[in-house]
């Protein structure tokens, strides 16, 4: 009983973090949908998470091949904000922020090459890290205090992001930039800057999730891959860009993963992937009652 309780507690602590990264991916997806190459934008956002893990842990290049792109975009978004405030003309860093995908090759690839070279020369490899924080007992279950704090902070950031994206000053220009950019231009606003703002938020959310995850407990090589996939799946399941949806999906997927792994190591991840595939197929009308509904309406 205690074992199951510990598994459930672990899943509940994971869920806000997965949801936070899922929101970052979802917001980035909306930018990518506009730039018609969403995987690139989603990769940039998750790379920010990966980069943040590297920074927060101070060792272990877990995602060095992606981190430079995140750093470039994050820096460019900061510059674009400053440029917008100063009413400068659009210049190169701002253009990178507004269209990271279009500038990916010219910016990121040389940096990736340089960083990879540095890593090769220094001879560092991925490391297993632990926050080593003190433990606390919650309802009879022993958990790391750092994990609890990380989960609580992630939940707080989620709520804050959820409140921001509902505000008129945020969602109205963003919706117009995504759905009718020519209309937004008639109001005197540059859709690229609005999208740059969304990119900045998605990168920041991804980075925040990465930092919190790094402080939560153990980080192993390739963890960011697992984390990223889980977050992307939570985003897809909960509706890309939806904060409550991402949180609900993250809770469900974290539970499925934890219980599956408790039954047999590795089964949890398989269960998550299967669940997501089934739900996505059903939504698209491939199987089940949704499929029948699609046929009737068609």
């Amino acid at each position: 009983m205690t074992g199951i309780a510990a598994v459930l507690a672990g899943a509940m602590l994971d869920a806000p973090l997965a949801a936070l990264l899922a929101v970052g991916v979802g917001l980035g997806y909306r930018v990518g949908g506009r730039t018609e190459w969403w995987p690139g934008t989603a990769a940039v956002v998750t790379a920010a998470g990966a980069a943040a893990v590297d920074v927060a842990t101070g060792a272990g290049p877990t995602a060095l091949l992606l981190a430079p792109a995140a750093a470039v975009v994050a820096a460019a978004t900061v510059v674009s904000g400053a440029a917008a405030m100063a009413r400068w003309r659009l210049w190169w860093p701002e253009q990178v922020a507004a269209d990271p995908v279009g500038h990916f090759a010219s910016v990121a690839l040389p940096l990736v090459a340089v960083v990879s070279l540095v890593v090769a020369v220094r001879g560092e490899g991925p490391a297993v890290l632990s926050s080593g924080s003190a433990t606390v007992t919650v309802v009879g279950v022993v958990v790391e205090r750092g994990a609890v704090l990380a989960a609580l902070m992630a939940a707080a950031v989620l709520v804050a992001v959820g409140l921001v994206v509902r505000r008129r000053w945020w969602h109205a220009p963003l919706t117009a930039a995504l759905q009718a950019p020519a209309l937004l231009q008639r109001t005197g606003r540059d859709p690229r800057l609005v999208l740059a703002r969304l990119t900045a938020l998605s990168v920041a959310v991804g980075a925040m999730a990465g930092v919190l995850w790094a402080r939560q407990g153990e980080i192993a090589p390739l963890d960011m891959v697992t984390i990223t996939v889980t977050a992307a799946e939570a985003g897809v399941l909960g509706g890309l860009g939806s904060v409550p949806g991402a949180f609900g999906a993250a809770v469900v997927l974290s539970l499925v993963r934890a219980l599956g792994d408790e039954a047999r190591p590795g089964l949890g991840a398989l269960g998550v992937h299967l669940l997501v595939i089934v739900v996505v197929a059903a939504r698209r009308g491939r199987i089940g009652p949704w499929g029948a509904a699609v046929e009737r309406s068609g």
């Binding site: 109205a172 759905q179 009718a180 020519a182 209309l183 005197g188």
Partner: peptide, 16 residues
């Protein structure tokens, strides 16, 4: 008008 999913009131508040 093009048709984004916002209200008229929100649209008329878009100009800064």
């Amino acid at each position: 008008l093009e048709v984004p999913a916002i209200t008229v009131d929100e649209l008329l508040d878009l100009p800064r």
